[in-house]
């Protein structure tokens, strides 16, 4: 079904805008992106919403982080050199099959391989409100 209607990705329900953009205190997010300023600013954004954020600058580093401690959610960039978002997500899944994984992309559409590996994907051009609402929505659906 997802392959046939890739648009009907569960991410769309996060776009409601009615979800609170305030994260629960102590909810931990692992944020993986190879771009230094991008990941730093995103960390600040998530922290402003009350999340506890750990950053990793590559897929391999993110995998190491998840091995050493559990996270409530992983937010990772799709386009990373050598070990891209999907490959990273697969590896993360093998460590913690239950962890919600959200992929973030600068591309207007993600390849089919992404679907089924991650829980949600959102585009970087959707804006910070959208990102926070989507995280909140995904966390809620898991509790």
């Amino acid at each position: 079904m997802r392959r046939v209607f890739p648009l009907h990705n569960s991410r769309t329900s996060a776009a409601v805008g009615t979800e609170t953009s305030q994260g629960a205190k102590g909810v931990s997010i692992l944020c993986i992106d190879d771009e230094k300023s991008g990941v730093e600013v995103r960390k600040r954004l998530l922290e402003s919403a009350g999340y506890r954020v750990t950053t990793a600058r590559s897929g391999q580093e993110g995998v190491q982080q998840l091995r050493s401690e559990p996270f409530d959610l992983v937010l990772l960039d799709y386009w990373m050199p050598s070990f891209n978002g999907v490959a990273t997500a697969r590896e993360l899944r093998s460590i913690d099959p239950a962890v919600p994984i959200m992929i973030l992309s600068g591309l207007s559409q993600l390849p089919d391989e992404t679907i089924g590996v991650v829980d949600r994907w959102i585009l970087k051009d959707e804006g910070p409100e959208y990102l926070l609402a989507a995280i909140s929505s995904l966390l809620k659906s898991r509790h």
């Binding site: 771009e35 386009w79 600068g106 207007s108 051009d125």
Partner: peptide, 11 residues
């Protein structure tokens, strides 16, 4: 282009 624009734009 989308990738190149969207990354700095997001920041």
């Amino acid at each position: 282009i989308a990738h190149e624009i969207n990354n700095p734009l997001e920041i």
